[in-house]
């Protein structure tokens, strides 16, 4: 198995006023291709900082970080933007779709910044929306969609560039139980198809959909274990 994420003694410090906050105090983590990792921990444990670094939204203070073999810790802002565009698919808790913009246009957005031609953009965006079961909602705007549907749109947007990792930050935080199950089913399907998924959550039962759980506390990894009794959403259920 090829490692897609290699993190070595990563540190992240913030300066808030006179106070120096150690968000990450020397974290090492390797995630291999095709894995499904849940990052857990109470708030303030450093899991959000970890997710920002993995998502290339923030640069670490020190330490090594290779994403798909690329040394991220040395990258410039524009290079980081390109990595986010090409190698990472984000799914956020509050969906983060552009308002007043149709589903298909939202999904096209990463391709727009990736320099894909208009015709191919539309084709790939429609394909991605069909794959998450939204074939009939292509031209609806976010405010015309339910929470679950909006999250599907944002999954489609995350997938459209065929990224190396799918990074989901509390993807079910704003959804009810049934919809959460459906969304987790989609992640499992994608993982079954070979996509590496990293999930940040504080809900234990959501984390159990993953193959592996990494626990954070006080800026350090305190546990990195396989999920013993993994929950599965049956594909049939998802399709229905």
């Amino acid at each position: 198995m090829k490692p897609v994420i290699q993190i070595e003694s990563l540190k992240k410090q913030y300066q808030i006023g006179d106070q120096e906050i150690q968000a990450l105090r020397g974290v090492s983590l390797t995630i291999e291709e095709g894995d499904f990792v849940a990052i857990m921990g109470p708030s303030g444990s450093g899991k959000s900082s970890m997710m920002n670094v993995i998502g290339c939204l923030d640069k670490p203070t020190s330490g090594e970080f290779y994403l798909d073999g690329f040394p991220v810790s040395e990258a410039h802002d524009d290079e980081l933007a390109e990595i986010r565009n090409q190698k990472i698919g984000f799914v956020f808790q509050n969906f983060n779709l552009l308002p007043r913009t149709t589903a298909v246009e939202n999904v096209e957005l990463p391709l727009l910044y990736g320099g894909v031609s208009a015709k191919e953009r539309r084709q790939r965006a429609v394909q991605a929306l069909i794959s998450v079961g939204l074939a009939e909602r292509l031209n609806n705007k976010p405010n015309e969609l339910s929470g679950g549907q909006q999250q599907r749109v944002s999954i489609a947007r995350a997938l459209v560039n065929d990224p190396v990792i799918l990074l989901a930050d509390e993807p079910t935080g704003a959804l009810d139980t049934k919809t959460s199950e459906e969304i987790m089913g989609i992640f499992q399907q994608l993982n079954d198809a070979g996509k590496t998924v990293i999930l940040v959550t504080h809900e234990p039962d959501i984390a159990e959909y993953a193959k592996r759980i990494v626990r954070f506390r006080d800026g350090q990894i305190i546990a990195n274990e396989l999920v013993a009794e993994r929950r599965r959403v049956l594909s049939e259920e998802v399709r229905r």
């Binding site: 524009d78 984000f90 552009l98 910044y113 990736g114």
Partner: peptide, 16 residues
């Protein structure tokens, strides 16, 4: 600001 954040997260460069 949020829209700018979204655009940047999915790959918009400063110049964009």
């Amino acid at each position: 600001t949020r829209e700018i954040g979204i655009r940047k997260a999915i790959g918009a460069k400063r110049s964009d």
